[in-house]
Design a protein around this nucleic acid. Structure first.
Lengths: 332, 332
DNA sequence: CGCCGCCTTTGAAGCGCTTCAATGCGTGAG
DNA sequence: CTCACGCATTGAAGCGCTTCAAAGGCGGCG
């Protein structure tokens, strides 16, 4: 600071450039460069009473959805001149609340809390620092509590199923997984609704123990005979990993996808596109979720009092790939 | 603070509990609870001149290796009473240096910088705030510059290849990828060394355009005839995705793995274990890398002056799975 | 009974910045 | 030529905490 001229002026060039004449601004800039000056964010936050950082806690970094969420959130935060700090909870309650506390102490401008599980929400809602803008991602919560941004899984299930029907499939199977997972349950509801709207009867629903590729492999193997017999011509799997396993098993058994049976997955995972037969899937708007969430939290931070909580539900989208291209055979 | 008694005492109960009598400590604790008191981390850092946070910048959150690194780092940081802030650069130079700057302004205790690419290191080394403990992860750099922790890819390649040889394979193929990737090049060197040590001749090396499942599928398809002809009986693929694609293509073509050919991958990805035929692979000690890195950075932060930079190279490990179980056929 | 030393507690100083009232200066109007 | 007004700059106050020297209280020893 002594390099150029004053002291409080330096602050002005940093925060209110308009108040400062061009020449002094330059002098100060030069001095800062020469001194390798790095403003102290802590002091700034303390003095200004506000902080240009927002925090996000993610439940599972191995799920690309959440990585997308982070990317979207960073995009928005960055655009607003804020930094995004990521914390990973590995779905552990204890770590979720620890990270919440850390963010509260850091006096971040706001928090994006991403949860998978409604139970965790109940358990943790007490830990969310009152008075600190917090928006829930991936879980719809009462607007009386906070803003939230989630994705309509029931709609996604409906879209996947309707797509199968519209491309001529009639004998449909839903492959789910443990009913305890909220998203799976909702996707299954969407399946049922779409089937019902067309007055079709689902062939059946299958619930393997998990939702991974190996589970899909098992399901696929079990379905080979029914497909050959023409009893099944469309499969909606609740996750892409499941779908990939199914397709893999079917292919290995000589069943043609999509000629003999169409398969649709969910999530738009790498497993879906990086497959010998690319798999049609429902893409979750992860980046949008992050972006919208960050915008909401920043809005709440900026207008604390006029702010009204909102609950947004985003729509997933259908990504058509080879595994469900219309079959040559006539529908029916 | 006024709830109990004093002011500076509150600080003591937070930082030097030993100086405070049990009764006052309790009174203060009770008051803090009643007031929902959350200490201001910014003020603490400012006053104390130190910060209980370390930052890590990761190049790619969709790579489970780096997620593991973060997990390990958080583990160590946590144990030392520090919080870990994650920033994702998506391998973009511009974001790497932005995050570095953010951490510098936040006056974190230290930074873990994880890079994939030597070029980025050269470009960014100027941005790493001098005077702020920084350790490089995943890339070995001159100890004159900073500490670093990396994994020995050449050794990994050697281990994978030696495993193939020791389980009786003699006609080996290396499947790499773009030579521009440092890790691929090192793994290939390890392959060459292992083969050379046994005075074998590699059948050949294949460099598909990428290192994903689809690339592997192509390579696998191309190798079917040679395997049937007995010209090839072992494959070392530079990534698990590649290996998974290869196994998938071979299986689809009716080639038996591991009976007809053994396959070894690299990375210990989900793709390796979540495959119908689980794939033998080389596991990178990601968590260890993070843990050791965090320990180093904290050590440097605590003893600024006595600190000597160190360069640690960790060893990968072999994970044997079905894809390379010794074949029934006699070796030779 | 008085003094000393130790364990606790206190209060003031200051961390690096922002903010804001106050000052200084140059300019156009009178 | 003078006065007033506006823009640029300044300096002091204070953000919430830690630290440290100094004060207070207590028991034990002489």
């Amino acid at each position: 600071m002594l390099a150029g001229v004053s002291l409080g002026t330096v602050s002005n060039v940093l925060n209110h450039p308009s108040r400062v004449s061009a020449v002094t601004a330059q002098k100060v800039a030069r001095a800062m460069a020469k001194l390798d000056y790095v403003p102290d964010g802590n002091a700034r936050s303390l003095a200004a009473g506000s902080n240009r950082t927002i925090g996000i806690v993610l439940p599972d970094l191995s799920n690309s959805l959440f990585v997308d969420v982070a990317r979207g959130a960073e995009d928005s935060a960055d655009r607003a001149g804020h930094a995004l700090m990521i914390a990973n909870s590995d779905t552990r309650l204890e770590r979720e609340s620890r990270h919440l506390r850390t963010f509260a102490q850091a006096r971040v401008a706001g928090i994006l809390l991403t949860l998978n599980d409604e139970d965790h929400y109940e358990a943790i809602v007490g830990d969310t620092p009152k008075n600190l803008p917090t928006v829930m991602l991936n879980l719809a919560v009462p607007v009386s509590r906070s803003c939230s941004v989630s994705v309509d899984n029931e709609l996604g299930g409906w879209m996947a199923t309707t797509h199968l029907i519209e491309t001529g499939r009639r004998r449909l199977v839903f492959v789910g997984g443990p009913e305890s997972l909220d998203p799976v349950r909702d996707r299954s509801k969407g399946f049922a609704r779409a089937v019902g709207e067309r007055s079709l009867q689902p062939v059946r629903a299958i619930s393997p123990p998990g939702v991974n590729r190996a589970d899909g492999w098992g399901v696929g193997t079990a379905l080979v005979d029914e497909i050959r017999a023409g009893v099944v011509d469309g499969i909606f799997a609740a996750t892409d990993l499941l779908a990939a396993g199914i397709v893999q098993a079917l292919t290995a058994a000589g069943v043609q996808v999509p000629e003999d049976v169409a398969v649709v997955g969910y999530d738009n995972n790498q497993a879906a596109w990086d497959s010998p037969i690319p798999i049609t899937t429902i893409a979750q708007p992860g980046e949008d979720m992050g972006r919208v969430g960050a915008d909401l939290v920043l809005e709440e931070a900026q207008r604390r009092f006029e702010h009204q909580h909102r609950s947004l539900v985003l729509e997933p989208s259908l990504v058509v790939r080879a595994s469900s291209r219309p079959s040559a055979r006539p529908p029916g």
